[in-house]
Simulated scan of single mutants.
Amino acid sequence: MTIAQLIPMAINLSMALMVLALGLRASWADAASLMRQPGLLVRSVLSMNVIMAVVALIMAGLLDLHPAVKIALVALALSPVPPILPGKQTKAGGTTSYTASLLATMAVLSIVIVPLGMALISQVFGLGVSVTSGKIASIVFIGILVPLAIGILIRQFAPILAAKIDRPLSLFATVLLIAAFVPVPVKIWPQLMEMVGNGTLIALMVFALIGVAVGHLLGGPLPDNRTVLALATSARHPGVAMAIAASAFPEERAVIAVVLWHLIVSAVVCIPYVKRRTNLHKASQVGTP
C-alpha cells in the first residue's frame, strides 16, 4: 500500500475516532434530542444548508474564481458538520446533547439534502454537477453514524471504560489527523499557492464569518446552542465537500486545495469567537452549584 493510499485512510480514521470520542460522552437521548425540538431543527437546517447555500451561490456568481473553487464553495454550504468540530464546540460551552444530535441529524439529512440541493442548483445555474445519495450515505455512515453509535453503546454498557478512554482517544485522533495532513500541503503546494492571491482565501474568510454570524443569530435564546450552531455553520465536512466537487472535477487538485484552505481559514476565523464564548461560558458557571 502506497503513502498516497494511506493518507486518506488515516484522515478518515482520525475523524471517525473523534466522533467515537464524542459518543463516549453522549447517550441515545442526546443523539435524538434535536428531533424533539422542531424549532431548533428548522433553524439549524436553515442556517447550515439554506442561507449558506445562497451565500455560496452569490459569491460564486460575483467573484472571478476557478470553476472548481465555485463548486467547492457550494459543496461546503451543503455538507454536514465536520467530525473535527464537536470537540471545539463542547470546549466553547456547547452542550454534548445538541452537539451530538446536530452531528447525527445533519449527517442523516445530508443523504437527501446534498443530492437534491446539487441537482436543483445545477439545473438552475447550469453547473453540471450531480452526486448520488449512496455516495453521501457511505461517507456519513462510516465516518459519523457508526462511530457515534459505537461510542454511545460503550458508554451505555461500560461507562467506566468510556470515561477512561475518552480523553486519550481524543488526543490520539487529533495527533493522527495532524500527522496524516502534513504530507497533503506538500503534494498540492502549487495549487495552494495559486489561491493566495486570486480571491479564494477572501471568499473562504467571508464564508466562515457569515457562517458564524448566521449560526449565532439562529441558534436561539440559549447561549450554548448559539455557540454550537455558529461553529457548525462556518465549518463543513471535508469528505462530503470533496466528493461533490470531485464529481465535476475528478482530476482537479484545486478541489482538495480549496477544502484544505477552508479547514484552515474557518479554524483561524473562529478563534476570537471560540475564545469569547469559552470565557462567557466559564463566567456563567461561576457560582453555579
Rank of each mutant, 00 (worst) to 15 (best):
L13W: 09
A241P: 10
L120H: 07
P223E: 11
Q285E: 14
N12K: 11
K275Q: 07
D166V: 00
M193I: 12
A254V: 03
P86S: 06
M18D: 03
A208H: 10
N12L: 00
A21D: 09
S130T: 13
G211D: 15
F249I: 10
A68N: 10
P223Q: 10
S44Q: 13
M106W: 03
I84Y: 10
P223T: 14
A56R: 06
A208G: 10
M195H: 13
M118T: 09
A246H: 09
G87C: 14
W28M: 06
A232D: 10
M15P: 02
L6W: 01
V55T: 13
L24F: 13
L192P: 14
G219H: 07
L171A: 04
G126R: 08
V214L: 05
V55M: 09
F172R: 00
A232S: 15
I271P: 09
V182W: 01
A245D: 02
L204Q: 04
N49C: 00
K282V: 10
E251P: 13
L13K: 07
V265E: 05
P272F: 13
S79V: 00
V45P: 07
A56L: 07
R226F: 11
T174G: 07
V140L: 10
G215V: 11
H216K: 08
A267M: 09
K275W: 05
R167T: 12
Q156T: 13
T288M: 01
R276Y: 01
A104D: 08
V214N: 03
S44I: 05
D64K: 12
A31E: 06
D224V: 05
A149T: 15
G287W: 04
G134K: 13
V19D: 01
S33I: 07
I84S: 13
G239Q: 09
V258W: 04
V268M: 12
V258N: 03
A232C: 14
S247P: 07
A100P: 14
S122L: 11
K91A: 02
S247N: 11
V175I: 11
L46Y: 02
R36A: 14
Y98C: 07
K187P: 01
I264D: 11
V228M: 05
L209A: 14
I111P: 06
Y273D: 05
I121Q: 06
T233N: 04
L6A: 10
G239D: 00
I142D: 00
M193L: 14
I113E: 10
V45Q: 11
L46D: 03
N12I: 00
L231S: 04
K275T: 05
I202Y: 01
G143H: 06
A60C: 02
A26I: 04
A26K: 04
L63C: 03
V140Q: 09
P185N: 00
A162K: 01
G61A: 02
W28R: 10
S247E: 11
P190C: 03
Q89T: 12
G126K: 09
I188V: 15
M15S: 04
G126C: 08
P185F: 02
I11M: 06
L204V: 01
E252A: 15
G93Q: 02
A248W: 11
P185D: 01
I154D: 08
L22M: 12
P67G: 00
S122C: 15
L201N: 15
V54E: 08
V175E: 02
S110L: 15
S266K: 03
L127G: 09
P250D: 09
A104N: 08
Y98Q: 03
V129G: 07
D64Q: 14
R236K: 14
Q156V: 00
L176N: 06
I178N: 05
P238G: 05
H216F: 12
T99Y: 08
